[in-house]
Amino acid sequence: MAVLQIGLEFGGGAEILVGNQKVHEISLLITDKLWTIGGLLHWIKDNILKERPELFLQNGSVRPGILVLVNDADWELMDTVNYELKPNDRIVFISTLHGG
């Protein structure tokens, strides 16, 4: 079956939500639907998010205050959740919500 290989990185405390593991190399099954970051966020929620999903996802996007980088560039330049994933993309999530 065809798969889409991408790399995920979590930082700034966001790694705590995904089992304290900073780097995740993942394979997404290719179906007739294109993989967008929006779809990836759901995949993360269903597969690797270990605790308190509300600290990562809100209203179908990431929680405000979490930065998303696609291959080192800001996802705001790439239509955010609608960005279509390409093979070997590196998606980085950095939480800026420190402290309490």
């Binding site: 705590i16 930065l67 309490g100």
Partner: peptide, 24 residues
């Protein structure tokens, strides 16, 4: 602002201590 700081750290490959914060 926090975005500038995080991008600065990211682009300079700076890793740092991040202790678990208190769940308040």
């Amino acid at each position: 602002d926090s975005k500038e700081i995080e991008y600065y750290n990211k682009y300079n490959n700076i890793t740092y201590v991040h202790a678990r914060t208190d769940e308040v």
